[in-house]
Design a protein around this nucleic acid. Structure first.
Lengths: 255, 255
DNA sequence: CGGTATCCCCCGCGATACTG
DNA sequence: CAGTATCGCGGGGGATACCG
């Protein structure tokens, strides 16, 4: 009963250090927080939108993180004119952290191997969907079906300029293109480690449909914002896995 | 019993996202990890040294973090020639994260207020001690006693070129200088928010001892590595707290 | 000195329901 | 649609002992 009187609880949420790295880490380096920032930075400003992008976070934790970030001055919560809810934006004080998030991403892209547990078809399709560029979509509606080997769930991407859609069951508009690939393969394509055309040429990604539509996929299929920092891989059939193809850097010698 | 068969446990340590930010955050943005890196970066390569700098981490957690960092390729554990233990160094793959840690520190220094719970006399004195520059120390031994208002524990800093020491009880060499201040005040001096000379002139920091020795303190008393990014403060006697003194930025207009 | 094993508490977080 | 309240669990991590 006297325990509280004796002073500090055994568990302190913070680090109890005045060091600026420690104080910043108390906020920034907490579970989910960098990902919340990633979402806000990449243009998702509504609660449920962020929730969806985080995908396994619970609403209460997201609320808690948003409040912490707001109290720390990192994000601004602007009350919606409609009266209900807020939209969240990076604040001036939070701007420097944009670069920190970005640096983390670049580093991860360059040095971290993709693990089995990182793969998630829902998340992949959501990312693909969210990064579709309107002006690259066909003017008249086209439906692309994605099948992942070994998974029952299919996805239908409705390409429709200015109003694309992602469906988890057949929307019933017909299917113009069929994409069939390993989840890992398509993920690596999205991440920029694998070229879509090359992958489809070698059969790693199977495409079915009208020739021009199939060819157009390389245009509208988006890539991760970190794709340019990707290390290219190729599929090793004997190892049945992807291995990095080293950039020769020998080109200097040939000059 | 079937729960395991049904698949994923409720709690997943990782985020289950292939996004590079998520994968990097799984490692970097975990409790204690940025601070472990801070220690290694700032020249502490031995287990117990890091342990001491982290100060409230438990040895098992530190071991766990070091292993994770090593497996991720961020640090190298070099076995000691003596056979026992290892020394830890940032690896080439971890080098980019040095900048991330630094950016976090700079941001924290610039935008985060110092809170009551961040203050810790042990940690402060340890930092001061670790950052003493040998070549700035007096050739013949001098003992400086630090008293913090309201705290019983005193600290004795033994200034001795090439072999300084920090004691938690009177080392018995006499006391040449006596420093008395608020814990918060001296912390802010160390952080670079407050100038030592100015603080002692206004009595915020009380110094007793031979004139030359007292004056020399501004020389050997070290500052945080992030001091140059500090926002200066002054003490507001009516509010009984420190407030930021804004940099006028008016100087441009005067030109 | 350098690190691991153990133990156990507590709280973080995931799931879900619910409210405006 | 935008969040908040509640609940129960599981494991993270703090303290400590211990081993090489």
């Amino acid at each position: 009963m006297e325990r509280a009187v004796l002073g500090q609880n055994r568990y302190m949420h913070g680090y109890g250090q005045f060091c600026p790295v420690a104080r910043a880490s108390e906020i920034f380096a907490e579970r989910w927080t960098p990902l919340v920032l990633r979402e806000v930075i990449s243009g998702h400003h509504h609660f449920n939108e962020i929730l969806k992008g985080l995908h396994r976070i619970s609403p209460s934790v997201l609320g808690q993180r948003l409040r912490t970030l707001e109290r720390a001055g990192i994000i601004e919560a602007r009350a919606n004119p409609s009266g209900r809810g807020s939209t969240y934006y990076i604040s001036p004080a939070g701007r420097p952290l944009v670069d920190v998030v970005r640096a983390l991403g670049i580093w991860g892209q360059e040095y971290l191997e993709l693990k089995r547990e990182d793969l998630d078809p829902d998340f992949l399709m959501w990312q693909v969907f969210k990064h579709l560029k309107n002006d690259l979509l066909p003017a008249d509606q086209r439906v692309v079906r994605f099948d992942f080997k070994g998974l029952r769930q299919s996805y239908w991407l409705v390409l429709r300029r200015d109003d694309p859609d992602l469906c988890y069951s057949d929307p019933g508009f017909g299917e113009h293109v069929m994409v069939r690939a390993d989840l890992e393969t398509l993920t690596r394509v999205y991440l920029g480690e694998l070229d879509l055309k090359a992958a489809s040429a070698t059969g790693l990604v199977e495409l079915e449909g009208p020739r021009d539509l199939v060819k157009s996929m390389a245009t509208w299929f988006p890539a991760s914002g970190y794709a340019r920092f990707a290390r290219p891989v190729k599929y090793d059939r004997t190892k049945r896995s992807f291995i990095r193809v080293e950039m020769p850097a020998r080109s200097a010698a040939t000059a």
